[in-house]
Design a protein around this nucleic acid. Structure first.
Lengths: 148, 148
DNA sequence: TTGCGGATTAGACTCATTCTAACTGATTAG
DNA sequence: CTAATCAGTTAGAATGAGTCTAATCCGCAA
């Protein structure tokens, strides 16, 4: 179920951590592995339980710490929807999120550069945005999860 | 500071409430008045304190109730940013939000129909969205609040 | 070996929000 | 009139995601 990190993923993790002056630890590897294994935008709690299967002693606080670290060094993105628990997403390409009203599932929606551009263009002069978050809320036809 | 509702606003409130089978109460009027008086996207707590100046016995629970009611009948919109307290906004026109990194202030950004359309068009078939939320995060040049 | 510093841990804590149960006050039914 | 009903309000308790704290662990350098 939770396969190990590929060499490539391992390097990716190591590079990002070291670049921001932090260490690769077994806990961080475990959490990162979980994130890549099932790209279903898990909550902290879900990550915690999945990672525990592989590393039983892991604490919740550490999962919070790891995820914060990953966000800090650009390895994953936070996804917030209304006031629900924060979810985490290892997809780094610019994309929007679609939240299914019925199932609560979150899907990534590709965001073409030209749409990004037109969005940026609606900002009045003087407004300088680094982050744009776009989220849709509605119904999605049954669609299998694309765990790539 | 907090002036009374205009006749027009009063009718607006009454119509929306009655249409969804609910009553106009002094508390609801007070909360609505506060929302219209200063359109700075206040948190529940801010609404609470402002409304207390006018109606000292008002309880926090009621403010939560009123705001929920207003959202339910389309009088106001919730604005969430990351996991911060929910803010409320009486601007009903479709618009995005810009959150100033430094001050925490939230500004409305007009959302042209054509941008809305291009956004809707990026949804793959099978995805049907009712709500689109767009929020920018960055720095804004000094700009006075437009309390209209 | 000792000391240092980052990482991890369990558990206490915070705080926005929700829930609960009692109360109020207007309206309706007898 | 009097009681029953019912939406709305209220204070305070409960919830739960997230944060903080203080102790410990562990790899590395002096």
């Amino acid at each position: 179920m939770i396969r190990n990190l590929t060499e490539q993923d391992k390097e990716h993790l190591q590079e990002a951590l070291v670049k921001s002056g932090q260490k690769v630890t077994p806990q961080r590897e475990a959490v990162f592995t979980v994130l890549l294994a099932e790209r279903d935008h898990p909550t902290v709690d879900e990550v915690f339980h999945r990672a525990r299967e592989v590393m039983p002693g892991l604490s919740l606080a550490t999962v919070y710490n790891c995820l914060e670290t990953f966000v800090g060094c650009g390895l994953v993105r936070q996804v917030n929807h209304e006031r629900e628990s924060t979810r985490y997403c290892p997809n780094l390409a610019p994309h929007a999120h679609f939240r299914d009203k019925e199932t609560g599932q979150v899907h990534d929606i590709e965001l073409p550069a030209e749409v990004m551009k037109s969005l940026r263009s609606i900002l009045p002069p003087g407004f300088d945005s680094e982050v744009i978050e776009i989220s849709f809320h509605g119904r999605a036809q049954a669609k299998e999860s694309h765990s790539n």
